[in-house]
Each structure stands twice: as C-alpha cells, then as structure tokens.
C-alpha cells in the first residue's frame, strides 16, 4: 500500500494514533456491530427460530402422533425446516447495509471487503445457524427422536448451517439490487444447498438409529470448508458488482 507525501499531511494534523485498524480487529468490529444490531431488532432475530419451531411442531399434528412414524420422518422434517428457516433470515443479511450505505463504506474502508463480509456471514450464522442447532434436538424430541441422538443432531445442524450460511451469503449478495428478492434468492440458493440437506438428513438419520454418522458429517464438514474457502470471495465480488 503506497502512501503519498500529500496523504501524510492531514494524518499528521489529526490527533491520536492514526495507524490503520488490523484486518482481524475490523472483522471483529463488524461482527460485534451486527450482533448488537440484531439484539436491538429482536423480532427479526427470532423470526427464523419461530418458523422452525412452528414447522416442526405442526408435522406431528399433520402426520400422526405415532412416535415410530414421526421418528422415520424426523431427519427430513428437521433439515427441511432448518434449510427454510435459514433461507428466511438470508434476505436481511446485506439488505439494510446496502440501503444505508454501509456496504459502500466497507468497500471504501481500505480493508478487505471479502474479510468484512465473511465477518458478517459469521454473525449471521451465530444468530441463526447456532440457535437452530440448539433448537433442533428439542424439536427432534417432539418428533420422537431418542435422547441418544441429540449430540449427532446438534453437531450435524451446526456444521451444516455453516455451509448454508455461506452458500446463502453468495445468493444474498447476488440479489442485492433486486426488489422483493426472496423468490430469486430461493431459486439461487436451494439447488446449491441440496448436498447439505442430503448429507445433513443422512447424518441425523444415522444418529437416530444409533449408527456411525461420521461419514455424512465429514462430508458436511467438507462442504463447510469449501464454503469458507470460496463463498466469501464470490460474495465480495457480487457485492462490488451491485455497488456499481
């Protein structure tokens, strides 16, 4: 990064430490800011969780109260509900920041936009994916899932939701400039989320049956790692295009 002589003059005139914020500190500030904002808009925060709870509790009413039947459909119900809940929250990921000029300021901050948007995606996962992972066993118990399956469900939903948040961040960034982007966002995100749904449901099914669920869990982990590697770059590129 070059610094011109003219650039130095106003910096010297300013008071206090004028060193740039480190990339890690900038990401941490972005994360903290998003968490603080989310807790001031609690309605928006709990919306995906309420949706998840409603869907999973409606299934026993619609199918049958018979636990053996519910146990059979539990993996699918849990994962479809988790996927749709995650999708519900995605619309808010960048929308407000785009409207109020925050994304522009991020793009012009001198920090890596990729890194700042990754921090936002982590905040999104902490606010939606992690609570879903905590809620999933409770919903599972209402579907007749044995207590022994709880660890498997928590871990698989936690890892799978990382991948869902990262895939979703790309979709949210691509649809930034689109009014009422929900339908388009679903269309973009759902096909990419299918592997997560398949491996997540398989891991949950195996944990319910008391089997070894490490193989589908590792595949979920691989998807999450792939997401961490590629999604932030694609998200930043899509945001830049939309800022033009």
């Amino acid at each position: 990064m070059h610094r011109s002589a003219a650039a130095a003059a106003p910096r010297r005139a300013g008071a206090g430490a004028l060193a740039m914020t480190s990339a890690l500190a900038a990401a941490r500030l972005t994360l903290v800011r998003d968490l603080r904002l989310a807790f001031r808009k609690r309605g928006q925060l709990v919306q995906p969780l309420v949706f998840f709870a409603i869907v999973t509790t409606l299934f026993p009413l619609a199918i049958s109260p018979e636990l053996s039947r519910l146990r059979d459909v539990a993996p699918g119900v849990l994962w479809v509900a988790a996927l749709l809940s995650s999708l519900l929250a995605l619309e808010f990921l960048f929308r407000d920041d785009a409207h109020d000029g925050t994304l522009e300021q991020y793009a012009l901050s001198g920090q890596s936009l990729t890194w700042l948007l990754f921090a936002k995606t982590v905040a999104h996962w902490l606010l939606t994916g992690l609570p879903l992972a905590v809620m999933a066993p409770l919903a599972g118990l209402s579907l007749g899932v044995p207590a022994s399956a709880v660890p498997g469900i928590v871990v698989s939903v936690a890892v799978g939701s990382v991948a869902l948040s990262l895939i979703g961040s790309v979709g949210a960034a691509l649809t930034l400039g689109v009014k009422r982007s929900g339908a388009l966002l679903s269309l973009l995100t759902l096909p990419l989320s299918m592997p997560v749904l398949i491996f997540g449901a398989r891991a949950t099914e195996l944990s319910i049956k008391g089997g070894d669920f490490s193989a589908p869990l590792q595949l979920l982990g691989a998807l999450a790692v792939l997401g961490v590697t590629l999604a932030p770059l694609a998200t930043a590129a899509a945001v830049r295009i939309n800022l033009e």
Binding site: T21, A26, L29, T30
Partner: peptide
Amino acid sequence: LTPRENLRYWIGVRRP
C-alpha cells in the same frame, strides 16, 4: 445505533 456507536463501528473499521 446511537451516533457514538455508529462512529465507533464505522470509523473503527478504518482506524482505532
């Protein structure tokens, strides 16, 4: 956020 919080997060990303 308050003006103070806004400044902290907005400017803080650039410099402490």
